[in-house]
Amino acid sequence: MANDWLHTSTGDPRGFIVAQELKELWFHTGTSCNLSCPFCLEGSSPGDNRIHFITLDDVKNYLVEAKELGVKQISFTGGEPFVNPHFIEILAHCLEYFPCMVLTNATEPLMNQIQKVVQLKEKPFQVRFRVSIDYPNAEQHDKGRGKGNFTKSLKTIAILEQQGFEVSIARLQFQEENTQDVDQIYQKLFEKYQISQDTHIVKFPDFDTPNSSPEVPEITETCMTKYLTKEQKDAFMCNFSRMIAKTNGRLSIYACTLVDDDDQYATFGTLKESLETKIMLKHHRCFSCFAYGASCSEK
């Protein structure tokens, strides 16, 4: 049986996406993190170097082309971006040209640098933050992220909002959940910590850890045409975004934020060239996008 880049294990043509545009450019700041959460999508931990710290010069390589291609937003993920020693200067530079979004755990690395972050309010464009609050209670959240981090993150969100920053939160999407009920539990939490009731909540399914191989259904070309509408296909991140990450001292362009553990999704040329590359939906996380419409972006 085939089971290669172009074909599923049954020999059917694999489903794919060809990007229509580049609206959002992500930078992976590095897999070093202050936390060691066992479920981390990126396998991040203190000092982890699977993906290296990105530098300001690395980022500058792409910003001119990003502007030419019409990128609307620069986003950052990690690791914990604020662990990267270059991150504040990278963010300050990007905010001269683009609105930015930062995915953060909102614990010590951000807390300790919040004065410098507040100074970024003076930049021409604004930065907003997305903070992971996996569960709406300290017990479950801290079980993975470490004792006390639930409260820290919520307090930091409140401070960021008081300083005029927009913040959203990312939570786990539970199987067969009543979304409205779960969101209401979060809203009670927001009230307790003096966080805006309008705070946007983004939900994510369990994506599994890097280099894992969970058994998920394969996506064929037929699946893409039979089960998805054009709007659903357009919502795949690889349709409108790319991510830059630095591995082994080299910058690569990945199809999305969730496939950086598979070199088949990396290209090494320009952003424009990466958009011309057909993205085959082979990674196990592609199925999450297919089945749940998951996306790291906030369109």
Binding site: L35, P38, P46, E108, M111, N112, I114, R145, G146, N149
Partner: peptide, 11 residues
């Protein structure tokens, strides 16, 4: 903003 913390790592 005046309190800077370094917690021994969890995980």
């Amino acid at each position: 903003m005046n309190i800077h913390r370094e917690v021994f790592f969890h995980g």
